[in-house]
Amino acid sequence: MSLNPYRVPVPPDGPSLQTQTGAWVLRESFLMALQRLPYFSLFSVRRNPHAGQIQKKELPLLGVYMMSRMAVPDSSDGNRGAHGAISFLDTCRIGFQVMIINMNDEAAERELDQAERAIDVGLWKNGHITNLFTSWNISDQRFEMIDNMHFEDVIRGDSRKKFGSVGVNNETAIAELQYDIQVTYREYFAPDITDDLLRFHGEAFPANYRKHEAYDEIVHVEYEWEFPR
């Protein structure tokens, strides 16, 4: 389960799993954590990859993008797809983009590698982010994961470093880290029961009972439940 039963509610106006997918919450949580790192203090930030073309004035740039979410039945109990309620094992692809300018190609590669390391260390060595009980950071008095969401694992990481256009004929000495990860988490969609069962009426009658026979041979039972409203 991705939702911690011991979770503390987030402020009502904050983003939460009540209104957003787990993929969105993961993206936002990772982005917030990276923005707090000194390494990215000078970087501008992007969430939406299609928010117009990236301009030179935006560099250096840190982008954290929600790329895709794949949900398959949660078969952790061995019964794949045999649940009464819908439950998913989600794999969410998050894309990290670090774009810099450096006239020295070798220095640019080294810098991008440092950025990749900063992402790995800043996220995966953060014990609050990877904590399966609570992401509450007591010293800073905040949750490191929005809505105290938990994820299970990072099952894949794929990074590439690119230096400008395919023909290397662009004017600006840009260098880019493209780092995709796949994060797994589980979701359980139990139905919301709003129509409570308050009264039960049962009738029992002989197997050879025929219609229009004496009604008093039938046993009637009736239950009523009262719940505080």
């Binding site: 992007r46 990859p49 299609h50 073309q53 990236i54 301009q55 030179k56 982008g63 993008y65 790329m67 894309g95 990290f96 983009q97 774009m99 690119k162 400008g164 256009s165 004929n169 662009n170 004017e171 600006t172 840009i174 880019e176 493209q178 780092y179």
Partner: peptide, 12 residues
Amino acid sequence: SEAETVYSDQTT
């Protein structure tokens, strides 16, 4: 670029 972002540049 990453996630089909597009960097706006020049060829000079």
